[in-house]
């Protein structure tokens, strides 16, 4: 596996020899990858290839699964994500996550966005909190739709709006990395295109890692693409290269629709 790094971009996260086990079963095999700062990196591959598992390594969400064990190192600056000394709470404040199914809290729209800043004690006053909520909703492109009904239940929003609310909720904490686990798989094509545009905008401020089943989506939104197969990273490179000139036969077979 050869990694070609564009020297114009700095490295944000460096994963080395990551192995993940569920009990006895190994889900990821020696995955090493360098993630570029302020870019979109897409993880693609057939179901069960370990791409979501790998994504959950970055903010230690695998800790929740009792049988799961993660080995190897993931360095983010000088923070070793996988180290026992690293507090997952602090880590998750730096790395936001958006899940496959929109999962707003069954509370008001305002409360959803305000929850993160509130638990981390980020706002000193009510006005500051209001500003943070407004700012996050604007960044998520939802402000115009919900500005006059912040006190409404979040569960009353449409699926696409809920997912953008989840993005607003994640960025309200002020992370520099965003993890997105198939964020559009539960949405219709129009809502999907809105989210994709949003991802392209957010890329200015955040390092985004996105798991997707749609190769078109990966091609549209990402600068880098990593192809996973059966728990191994098969190919990683610039998106345009991976999609036009795949170096690996498996990658080519997947991209051209022969497998997957």
């Amino acid at each position: 596996m050869d990694t070609v790094v564009d020297m114009a971009k700095a490295i944000k996260i460096q994963a080395k020899d990551v192995n993940v086990f569920y009990g006895e079963k190994q889900a990821l095999n020696n995955v090493s990858i360098d993630i570029e700062d302020r870019s979109v990196t897409a993880f693609i591959g057939p179901s069960g290839c370990g791409k979501s598992t790998f994504l959950r390594c970055f903010n230690r969400m695998n800790d929740v699964i009792p049988s799961c064990r993660v080995e190897g190192s993931i360095m983010m600056g000088d923070v070793d994500v996988n180290s026992l000394q690293t507090d997952p709470v602090l880590l998750r404040a730096r790395i936001g996550m958006v899940f496959q199914k929109p999962n707003p809290f069954p509370k008001t729209i305002f409360e959803n966005v305000a929850y993160g800043p509130r638990i981390h004690g980020l706002a000193q006053s009510k006005t500051e909190l209001d500003d943070m909520v407004e700012d996050s909703l604007k960044k998520a492109g939802l402000w115009g739709e919900v500005a006059d009904r912040l006190a409404d239940q979040a569960t009353g929003l449409s699926g696409g709006q809920q997912q953008r609310l989840c993005i607003a909720r994640a960025i309200a904490v002020g992370p520099d990395v965003l993890l997105m686990d198939e964020p559009c798989s539960a949405l219709d094509p129009i809502a999907t295109s809105v989210i994709e545009e949003l991802i392209s905008e957010l890329q200015q401020r955040f390092t985004i890692l996105i798991v997707t089943h749609s190769m078109q989506q990966a091609a549209r939104v990402s600068q880098k693409t990593a192809y996973f197969h059966l728990g191994t990273l098969v190919e990683y490179g610039d998106t345009k290269d991976v999609f036009t000139l795949p170096k690996n036969e498996q990658t080519e077979a997947y991209i051209s629709g022969k497998i997957g």
């Binding site: 709470v89 998750r92 899940f99 707003p104 809290f105 989840c166 904490v173």
Partner: peptide
Amino acid sequence: VPTSIRDAALGLGAS
């Protein structure tokens, strides 16, 4: 309670 709610809270950095 759906685990997605727990994941959402943990993902935001809630203890």
